[in-house]
Design a protein around this nucleic acid. Structure first.
Lengths: 210, 210
DNA sequence: AATTTACGATACGTGGAAGTTTCGAAAATC
DNA sequence: GATTTTCGAAACTTCCACGTATCGTAAATT
């Protein structure tokens, strides 16, 4: 996190420089830049998302971008973070099987939609860029897994057989979807989501025979 | 495949130009270049694997590389192809559960070893480069899945319950491993492989109760 | 021996993107 | 009104890697 701070954010002294006398930071511009970053990311992918393109799309100056973010990854990361926050909460219907189905369906919608390109771009960039890797995990993966785990935990005693490893279960839910989209590059359907959810549900549900 | 041919290989006229009078192509150099490409790929990843670095490491001239391959992706792709061919066959012990465990263990060894970096690099590159994407699928993913599917097919009647979707099963086997390594960036153990194999085995094995 | 092709070394041209700087104008404080 | 800070525009520098070109030399054919 320290390494992240050093490269993806500015000093807090810079961050809190609003108190001075001069013209305050234009929050509207900040929003436009982040939106533009996300849009460019969706259109061009991580590698091709240049700051020039972002600036042009935002109707902003490139200098303004570098005034507030230290580098390109920082802008893109904050854009993802803003877009993602409180998105796609794990459903909580009270029924385990329904929860699984719903969550996978929602996730597929996200992966196959415009925002799916952003995800693929970030995962790709994370393979070679340590900062992106850590940021992606802390901003997206970990919070989502924690949320999912907390809800699954409540079903543990009543609906699951003993000794189920929830981390493994989540890998089996999310893994195939990422894999499907990123490695097989195959389209993915809601029926697929249901079949996957059912398979995993079947593997972990409580039953009284071998 | 046509698009691939157009960008990742030279004309067959070039390929078969050996019959001329001059000095024949040095196959040793070809091998050195491909080995070097793989080594550089393992060290630096796809994006940072420059042809200059490959040439230097191979003790060859960059001009020689461009004499035989049209661009960077072509060299890297052929390097991967050579390294991968007939590697990691799906085991065939006669026991479904053992097959699953063995395959996952072997795959983990590959993913966590030096060559794992190559995989991650290719998957990452495939997100933005269509040629790499198609080549990776045709050279690696599809052959491996076909092999695995053929073997799993033989267990279908005797050991699996009805209606099991083998493609889905393979997604559940490979998906979590890719996911684990590429998205969570977490280390992965043989115990994890066994637990995953057991979970999936348990989900598809024949049984006579709900 | 003459010719043809391949190789290594190296320099070169090119393009793209990161990040910086300059400048005039706008919006705030004191 | 003077000062301070931000913004937009655009030129600029820097860097890096792709791909090409040149040249002297090595290995083959005829």
């Amino acid at each position: 996190m320290a390494a992240l701070m050093s490269t993806l954010t500015k000093d807090s002294g810079e961050e809190l420089a609003h108190r001075g006398r001069g013209r305050p930071r234009d929050e509207v511009v900040r929003g436009r830049i982040l939106s533009a970053a996300l849009a460019v990311l969706e259109d061009l992918g991580f590698a091709n998302a240049t700051n020039d393109a972002i600036a042009e799309r935002a109707g902003a100056s490139k200098a303004t971008i570098y005034r507030w973010w230290p580098n390109k990854a920082a802008v893109l990361m904050e854009a993802l973070s803003e877009a993602i926050t409180q998105e796609l909460p794990f459903p909580d219907t009270g029924n385990l099987r329904d929860d699984l189905r719903l969550q996978l369906r929602n996730f597929i919608k996200l992966l196959t939609g415009r925002r799916g390109r952003v995800f693929k771009a970030f995962v790709a960039a994370a393979q070679t860029d340590l900062d992106v890797s850590e940021a992606f995990r802390s901003v997206w993966v970990q919070p989502r897994r924690a949320n999912a785990k907390a809800i699954l935990e409540r079903y543990r005693n009543d609906d699951m057989r003993e000794g189920v490893d929830l981390d493994l279960v989540m890998d089996c839910l999310y893994g195939p979807l990422y894999y499907h989209v990123m490695v097989r590059h195959a389209p993915i359907s809601e029926e697929y989501a249901d079949a996957l959810a059912d398979l995993i549900f079947d593997a972990i549900k409580k039953r009284d025979c071998k």
